[in-house]
């Protein structure tokens, strides 16, 4: 169970004017700026839930995940994960939690993955039988068995991500934080990672928080989403509700003999607008759909709370 109340975080950084003059000036004086990354976040996640955190760059998704994983201290507010305060980092909590960051390596670069796994086995005190069982399950599901003895730095990006996933899940965590696990991967690797995460969720039912810029990740994995904008959660609910929120609208894709275009129209005008299109254009093909989830979320992120 995750409970977050009034959680805020601000970061301080320095501003530097561009060019040599700016660099020289910064040697003596730097202007400090404070950025509010999280603004009084409230969120509650139940056991076995998988929630997608979405938002534009700088919305605060990664900061929230880092606080819950205990690596960043909040400025104010409270949070408990499995009854622990994450940033106090009790070992009991760390044994039950995992953080996977798509852009960061956590296994040792210069060694084969199995060497890192052996160390993790000792660090997390995984019994020998359990360790072997987990290695087999993870390597089979991720189809990475042949790469376990190769130096990690020599693996492809997709293979490295799979190794990171294996390393993070070796100790069967009850809470998993996935920060853009498919970033930079090609389509087939993205699909494989998504498939694996789905299988893992079915098998072990951990609490999972996933941040991603790829809507496919969210659509396939997360029944619930929280949309963040400028450090605030502007929507928290089932993914299906997001679609229903703008369900009064339909999108018509039209192909005429000269061009192709899309129009958004209110549902009640659907019949008259379609008729009008046929009268006005030489329509070759016409397709009526609900607005894509990406567009709805984008409009929510731009427009603020619905």
């Amino acid at each position: 169970m995750i409970e977050i109340k009034n959680l805020s975080k601000s970061f301080k950084s320095h501003k530097k004017e561009p060019g040599l003059k700016g660099s020289l000036k910064a040697v003596f004086h730097r202007e400090e700026i404070t950025k509010l990354a999280l603004k009084s976040i409230d969120l509650s996640i139940n056991k076995g839930e998988m929630i997608g955190l979405i938002g534009a760059n700088g919305a605060g998704k990664t900061t929230l995940v880092k606080i819950l994983a205990g690596i960043v201290h909040p400025t104010s507010g409270s949070a408990t994960v499995l009854g622990h305060i994450p940033w106090e980092r009790p070992n009991e909590y760390r044994r039950q939690m995992s953080l996977i960051m798509g852009q960061k390596n956590q296994v040792w670069w210069d060694l084969p993955a199995l060497d890192s796994f052996l160390l993790l086995k000792e660090i997390y005190q995984i019994p020998k039988n359990q360790y072997q069982k987990n290695i087999d399950f993870l390597a089979d599901t991720l189809m990475i068995k042949d790469q376990l003895k190769t130096q990690v730095r020599k693996l492809s990006l997709g293979e490295r991500m799979k190794i990171e996933l294996m390393a993070a899940l070796l100790h069967n965590p009850q809470v998993i934080f996935l920060d853009e696990p498919t970033i930079g991967l090609d389509l087939s690797a993205q699909k494989a990672v998504r498939h694996f995460l789905l299988e893992y969720q079915k098998e072990f039912s951990p609490i999972t928080i996933l941040t991603s810029h790829y809507m496919e990740d969210i659509k396939e994995l997360c029944p619930r989403v929280a949309i963040m904008k400028e450090g605030e959660i502007v929507f928290d609910g089932p993914l299906a509700e997001v679609q229903r929120m703008l369900g009064d609208e339909k999108v018509i894709s039209v192909t005429t003999d000269v061009t192709t275009f899309k129009i958004h129209i209110p549902r009640e005008n659907l019949a008259s607008e379609t008729q009008h299109l046929f009268q006005k254009h030489n329509v070759v093909d016409l397709n009526i759909q609900d607005p894509p989830i990406e567009e709805i979320i984008e409009s929510l992120m731009k427009g603020g709370a619905p």
């Binding site: 205990g70 690596i71 980092r89 960051m101 960061k104 956590q106």
Partner: peptide, 12 residues
Amino acid sequence: EGTFTRYLLYPI
């Protein structure tokens, strides 16, 4: 580089 994170995650 940010790889320091791993030591904050391990239960040691």
